[in-house]
Design a binder for these strands. Structure first.
Lengths: 194, 194, 194, 194
DNA sequence: TATGAATGAGGTTTCATTCAT
DNA sequence: TATGAATGAAACCTCATTCAT
């Protein structure tokens, strides 16, 4: 069969269900049904319900990180890189709004319940942005007195908030605008003042 | 007796419990116990568990809005106002990290389940920031080609993300830094480029 | 004040509420509200919720018995008496359908939970009908080989079933018909066959 | 396994428990225990507690109706049919007093809360008796000026009342007597007077 | 691997009853 | 007597998880 593996189907179904109802209001049986498997089958692939969420989160973060690294590869300036970072993130949101919603919401919700592994996946993603900032500072493009990690987090919060607004609204044309405005604010915000 | 009203005690207890365990992992009986009332008493003041969360959210948003309006009153420039807006928000977080955490996390979680009333409370808060941006544009302080509402949302996301990081970490000195860096990035980001 | 005593008001309110929602679906607070007293006041007059029902039942049975005795007093033949018994019962139903419904329904529902006292009140009412039958048999009006108590019960069941149908329907003109048909069937049924 | 289905076991257990404690005083967990299943299993077969009662009611009514139709099939006169109708009803009561009690009691209790479906099951049963009366009238056996439906209801009330008395007493020999006396009263009552 | 019927722990909520005023 | 806010026991029901097939 050339259809995705069961494990994959379960994860995809989970994204769909979790984004529609929220993690705590989703039932495992709903996910099973959406995945076209029996309830019990879920437990052959995941220890429990929470493990599905964790996996969705990690998978997505890693995929995003990977996409970012590929897109950033070869770019010269930090300015270009930051622009790209924001664009890639919004592209993911644009292509998969449900996934974005799950990420964004559950990242918070689960918060302190997240395992270290998950925080690390998130940390790696933030690290990409932080590195861009640091590079920009080293190259003299960005103000040197901002803490890269903090800026990265701020940037993520801004992007994420706009993503959520976008995912929850019906006006699907906002991505482009969200992208350009975020870039404008942050690039200006980070630019070295002479 | 000069102690707070039962209703108030329940709300305070809810913030404590919700922030510690998350809304869905909190039990009404825990809230009752923390409030020093019987389980049933909760239901004299709130229709159900969710109504407590909603109320916490609305109360806080209104209080924050009110604090902002007072702090902003009399300020001249949009630049000053934006700086103040960020400061007031972080001050609240600094004084009441648990409350901030509940707000920030549950705002997302409940997301689309939120009632109009709640979205409106949130919308009013955003409106304050949006108006500052618009005023700044009208006065020539800020770039005119940014959409105030979008910027307000971006700003909220950034602040909120830093708040969450801060609330969940033990290093309580970050507030001051978070404030100053946010202000720097956003003020520069919004400034009119000549 | 010339209004009814609180105790009376509570009983009347109970009849209204119990008939509308059924005993188990009625809340004490509803009864209190309908009676215009505080919840706690109920417990100054009745030991508990069930005691209200019991009292309603006993009161009504005694009142019915009393009405029957007055109506029957002076009548000569058992035939006349039986006719009157049926008429008086249906008159009560006609005047106070809610009361009838409570009686009829709760008599069954409470069934084995009823105290002896209540069964005795009911027994006394049945006794009136049974005595009529026995007198009719002694006078040669009715067949001698029917057990009066059994017939009384049968009669009560028949009347009661029609009452219930009537109380629950909107067609309030049936009482007269129910009366005449019941009398016809039972008088013929009891008549001595030669 | 040749033992009854779980669904069947639950219904049987419900009859036992409901008749012993009354519907509102019965706990779902009691029914589950009596049926030998877990509490949750009940909800795989019934939407909620009330649905069990409804099902018991409908099942029994249909079974009774079916029994009646089979017993009546082939009988010639309405007199014979009426006699049979009463006998079959009392036989059911004699074989399954608990079931009878649940029926009789809860039929009233639930009263106006009953769904149309249930009233229809009851209506069909009444219809059988009503048809007998109508046939008897058409054949000249019974007085033509009684309304069949009303008489059917009266008959049901009488039978039912005796059933209840019987179910609640310990003297289990009364069925035969109840049968013969009911038949006597009603047949005479309905007979055409010349 | 896959199923899905069965489990049973446990939470939210109701409401009869109490008691301080 | 009267109040009504407060109590807290208890029940219905849900649903994540298991396990016999």
């Amino acid at each position: 069969m050339e259809q995705p593996s069961k494990r994959r189907r379960i994860l995809d179904a989970a994204v769909e269900i979790f984004s529609r109802y929220g993690f705590y209001n989703s039932k495992v049986s709903q996910v099973a049904k959406a995945a076209g498997v029996a309830d019990g089958t879920i437990y052959l692939y995941f220890k429990n319900k929470e493990a599905i969420l964790i996996q969705v989160f990690e998978d997505t973060m890693e995929e995003l990180s990977s996409k970012q690294r590929m897109a950033l590869d070869g770019l010269e300036t930090a300015t270009d890189k930051l622009r790209t970072f924001v664009r890639v993130h919004f592209e993911m949101v644009g292509r998969n709004p449900e996934l974005a919603e799950v990420l964004t919401v559950e990242l918070r919700q689960s918060g302190k319940f997240m395992r270290d592994a998950d925080m690390r996946a998130f940390g790696r993603y933030l690290g990409i942005a932080a590195r861009i900032v640091a590079e920009g500072q080293a190259a003299g493009e960005f103000s040197p007195d901002l803490r890269p990690r903090r800026v990265a987090r701020m940037l993520f919060g801004a992007i994420d908030e706009l993503s959520l607004e976008w995912a929850m609204s019906a006006r699907r044309k906002l991505v482009e605008e969200a992208y350009s405005q975020t870039v404008r604010v942050f690039l200006n915000g980070l630019n070295r003042k002479e």
